[in-house]
């Protein structure tokens, strides 16, 4: 990682100095040991502040749609293989123009100490570079080569085992489980704010003529919020887990997201963020669809 960070700093310094990008988004030192913090720099002499270690958990793709970053010019951004999926989603949905961003892919052996559970199942340790085929997001630069081999594609049973555990519960128990989980929600919207795919300038929960959803942090309002959030991310969530990590109340949001992903995979054979040329599941239809409500 020591070599990679030097390479990253040199690259960022060069991109900023030459004016290829005006702002560079990477990771910097966190306030406490075991944490990093997103670092947004606009001058080459700050490139030395960039950090690359086991704690670069944040999905920085969220900044690609933030005016606080984009108003400063063309953006250079650090992504891990998993984060690249969110960038793919943003490109597919027309939120980011490929020519406005310089993507620096970091090879990654997995994040967190202990290793995040999702990293154990990772199949994109080394992001795809310029030689990638059209079905992969091609990073402009790829730094390093992962030492860890990509995980074998799991069958759907193993991939969605935690969802299946909840599905198998009797209705009353499932209801009680989610009541307990959602009852804790304080409606801080950290889940929404850190999500790269939750880029709406005005969220459904903020529309009040009429008020579609209760904004109050009571259990009924929280149910409405979390179900709508999951539904709006169905076929779009790339499974980065940023929402769950950001939740101060430790609500297992990934379970909801995975439930949606599972349904989309089963019914539409689609995985979000995998292929920049694919038509997003919720953005397309075919006249031959078996369901007549499309026609």
């Amino acid at each position: 990682m020591a070599e990679a960070v030097e390479e990253l700093r040199a690259l960022a310094r060069d991109l900023l100095a030459k004016g290829t990008v005006q702002v560079f988004v990477g990771y910097g030192k966190g306030a406490s040991p075991g944490r990093t913090a997103p670092l947004i720099i606009t001058s080459a002499d700050r490139a030395a502040e960039l950090v690359w270690d086991k704690h670069c958990l944040n999905n920085l793709a969220v900044y690609l749609t933030r005016s606080e970053v984009t108003k400063r010019g063309k953006v250079g951004i650090v992504v891990k293989g998993c984060d690249a999926r969110a960038v793919t989603g943003l490109l597919q949905e027309g939120q980011v123009a490929r020519e406005n961003v310089v993507i620096v892919g970091m090879s990654c052996d997995g994040m967190g100490e202990p290793l995040l559970e999702a990293c154990g199942r990772c199949d994109v340790h080394t992001p795809a570079g310029k030689d990638a085929d059209a079905h992969h997001l091609a990073c402009d630069y790829v730094i390093g080569k992962a030492a860890v081999p990509d995980a074998q594609k799991e069958d759907e049973g193993a991939e969605y085992a935690d969802v299946a555990r909840i599905e198998a519960l009797p209705l009353a128990e499932r209801w009680a489980f989610w009541q307990e989980q959602f009852g804790r929600c304080v409606r801080c919207y950290a889940c929404r704010q850190v999500c790269p795919l939750c880029y709406c300038k005005r969220c459904a929960v903020e529309k009040n003529e009429p008020q579609w959803l209760a904004t109050s942090a009571h259990t009924a309002g929280n149910f409405a919020w979390h179900v709508i959030r999951a539904m709006h991310l169905a076929g779009r969530c790339v499974g980065c887990g940023a929402c769950e990590r950001a939740c101060p109340q430790h609500i297992p949001l990934s379970l909801l997201n995975k439930k949606m992903a599972k349904a989309v995979l089963q019914h539409f054979k689609y995985r979000a963020g995998n292929d920049p040329t694919a038509a997003p599941a919720v953005k397309t239809f075919e006249l031959s669809d078996e369901n007549d409500y499309f026609r």
Binding site: L39, E68, A190, R192, Q193, Q211
Partner: peptide, 26 residues
């Protein structure tokens, strides 16, 4: 310092002194 702020309420809702509130009719 704050371009990176995500704009959520995690800080305010954990804070002992933050006291702002909204009024809504349901």
């Amino acid at each position: 310092i704050a371009a990176r702020c995500m704009g959520c309420g995690t800080c305010a809702y954990g804070c002992p002194t933050c006291h702002c509130f909204d009024m809504v009719d349901e």
